[in-house]
């Protein structure tokens, strides 16, 4: 059984004349423990797929299922214990007035955990931050440290599927390396499944097993990373994308 199955997914914004179809008939499946990449240029709808899965994009049709369970329009609390998301911009994804301790503590509280203090400590250690960051506010953290907090928040409910929306595109390359390593380690340690969106082919090549190439809302090709490394594209658009990235 697949961890995540997306079948005939359509996502749109607006109504009537203003309707914009952001994703058109997307179909793919991610196996348990796999790391799957979505690549494409801006506006290709890759992030919108993640938002539709989490329910942040309300207008969608098609079938989404997690471990064979079809997702209803109104997601139950148990859904968020299985699926979590890391956002692109760590400067925008943390509440400016909440300390790290508040962010993680509230998340744990919402998921009904009891030993919140111990868990906050453990989460900070897991993402390589340590205790001295616990009571800091976001403006006292660097971009990489913020993204680590965001990852800790996503890990707090102990999810199985992690949706990564360009988790390193706002970061410097040296910090990107640290965050990507952290994600690799966490996946190995916790047996996580990743669905990762990126515009950077080399990042997807490093992190993923398979990938889907998107163009203006449609998936044009699903390929293995081995094929990506060989620049072995079947679709002309993929070929074009490869050439531009070289």
């Amino acid at each position: 059984m697949s961890m995540l199955e997306v079948d005939g997914l359509n996502v749109w914004f607006g109504k009537h004349q203003q309707r914009v179809d952001a994703v058109k008939n997307a179909t793919f499946a991610v196996a348990r423990g796999e790391s799957f990449g979505l690549v494409g240029e801006s506006g290709s709808g890759k992030s919108t797929i993640l938002r539709a899965i989490t329910g942040l994009a309300p207008d969608w049709s098609g079938t989404l299922s997690i471990e064979g369970q079809t997702i209803s329009k109104r997601r139950p609390k148990s859904f968020y214990k299985q699926v979590q998301m890391v956002f692109q911009d760590p400067y925008a994804s943390l509440h400016p007035r909440h300390s790290v301790d508040q962010v993680l503590g509230e998340t744990l509280h919402l998921h009904g955990f009891q030993d919140i203090d111990n868990r906050v400590v453990k989460l900070l250690d897991d993402v390589g931050l340590g205790q001295k960051f616990r009571f800091r506010y976001p403006h006292q953290l660097s971009g990489g440290q913020r993204q680590r907090v965001a990852i800790a928040r996503a890990l707090a409910p102990e999810p199985e599927l992690l949706l990564l929306d360009e988790p390193t595109s706002a970061l410097d390359v040296s910090v990107q390396a640290e965050i990507l390593n952290l994600l690799t380690d966490l996946r190995a340690a916790r047996g996580l499944t990743y669905l990762m969106v990126s515009h950077d082919l080399s990042v997807v090549g490093h992190m993923c097993d398979r990938l889907a190439v998107m163009k203006s809302g449609e998936i044009v090709e699903i390929m293995s990373v081995a094929a990506l490394r060989k620049m072995d594209a079947r679709h002309p658009y993929t070929q074009q994308l490869f050439e531009a990235s070289l």
Binding site: V173, S174, A177, S202, V203, G205, H206, L228
Partner: peptide, 20 residues
């Protein structure tokens, strides 16, 4: 050198990236 090495590369896959 550290910056260059910390970039993921399609032609030279590795398990972990070098950290500066």
């Amino acid at each position: 050198r550290g910056l260059l090495n910390s970039l993921p590369r399609l032609d030279a896959p590795s398990k972990r990236l070098e950290v500066l």
